[in-house]
Write a protein that binds this DNA or RNA. Structure first.
Lengths: 209, 209
DNA sequence: GTTCATATCGAACCGATGTTCGCAGGAAAG
DNA sequence: CTTTCCTGCGAACATCGGTTCGATATGAAC
């Protein structure tokens, strides 16, 4: 395979960036303006070259008919808002991400964050979810949402005791069961009106030293 | 929030399916034909409703300017080709996925499989990767590839001893280091020509009883 | 009955967009 | 030198595709 031309590399980077930002592929003219190319035919020419190189697939005669193949997963930044554990208060939610420094973010797989919004991260204190392979010190990635389905792992706010806890969520009629993943611990039962779902766990990060 | 109309649910399912298949969002007319709707204005009408409901974002005046938000992760089927461990043979690769029954597949997050091809799964024997949270009995998802970057977790085939092993890959000049994630075990050193990469680990599954 | 909101339909408008064609400069091969 | 291939350029074409508008139907509220 011939080596990739600089212009083709630039186009590839532009397409990746565009899809991250917008969620759908760019048009030929998007690429043209984004890469300072003087003609759409040049874009088409190099798009063909990239297709031959196997770096993307095209659906001809179709607007935005570009699909990237074999992408390495990239990462995205998620604000780290605090920590969470059974029996300990969670900082006011949502904390303002704008006030956070660089150190208060975590990197995560961009594929997981794709098409998701309002993500945040919390550091886990305690081993109540050890059997779900979530340990003390791990960072969980959550999607902010106020509803949950049965069996999902969620951050739940207990209104009366002002506690936040990381558990699996089970709706059981008028009450909810918050189930730890630790055989040494029993579930928490609470009135449904006393439980506010703060987010659903969509990922876990652990850093090795 | 008002409950979703059947037509809107159908449109949502169509959009999801379309994006899985094609890698980019459908046009208004794609949705029209795909859902047997008589007019594009009806599609537009219901698309606005779905936008109000927060289920998708639209870039107005832009073809295919549809982005799904908050999608529940769906799953995809990956063939389970066998097992892998240090010191034990791997079945001939690739086994023919067509000959496998339903029991020989695993379900995995479709987001992880996005834009990836030639995925397969192997069941792990032994605890050589215990510190990477991969235990005996776990299933690892691999992307078939014959090259790896330093630090990636790979399935490596040692040609002379006819063994396959799951390790982290480190290129060290003329030789390669295959590093287990278990403090009780030491690395394997091998001549680079004697090592053939079979795939890169992109996911791990564990089933709880 | 009237009124209003919801949902659908058909048609048209017009900008967006993929494709194609002729042409040109430059490098490599003859 | 000429020829050939690669790459870039500009313009034009035909269709694609998002949007809008007026009309219709249904049902709930009054």
């Amino acid at each position: 395979m011939a080596t990739l031309r600089p212009r083709q590399q630039e186009m590839l980077r532009f397409i990746e960036h565009f899809m991250d930002e917008r969620g759908f592929p760019p048009t030929v003219r998007d690429i043209q303006y984004g890469c300072d190319i003087s003609s759409t035919s040049v874009v088409d020419y190099n798009l063909r070259a990239l297709t031959r190189a196997g770096l993307l697939k095209r659906s001809r005669e179709v607007s935005r008919g570009i699909e990237l193949v074999g992408r390495r997963p990239r990462t995205t930044r998620v604000p780290l808002l605090g920590s969470i554990a059974a029996g300990q208060p969670l900082p006011v939610f949502p904390a303002d991400p704008a006030t956070l420094g660089d150190e208060d973010h975590v990197e995560m797989d961009a594929e997981l964050a794709k098409n998701k919004d309002r993500l945040y991260a919390l550091q886990v204190k305690g081993d109540s979810m050890i059997d779900a392979l979530i340990r003390d010190g791990d960072v969980v990635i959550l999607q902010a949402q106020d509803q949950a389905e049965t069996g999902e792992m969620v951050a739940a706010w207990l209104i009366d005791t002002e506690e936040t806890t990381l558990k699996r969520f089970y709706a059981e009629g008028p009450r909810v069961r918050l189930q730890p993943e630790n055989t040494a611990m029993g579930p928490i039962y609470a009135d449904a009106r006393n439980v506010q779902i703060k987010g659903r766990v969509i990922g876990v990060l652990r850093r090795y030293e």
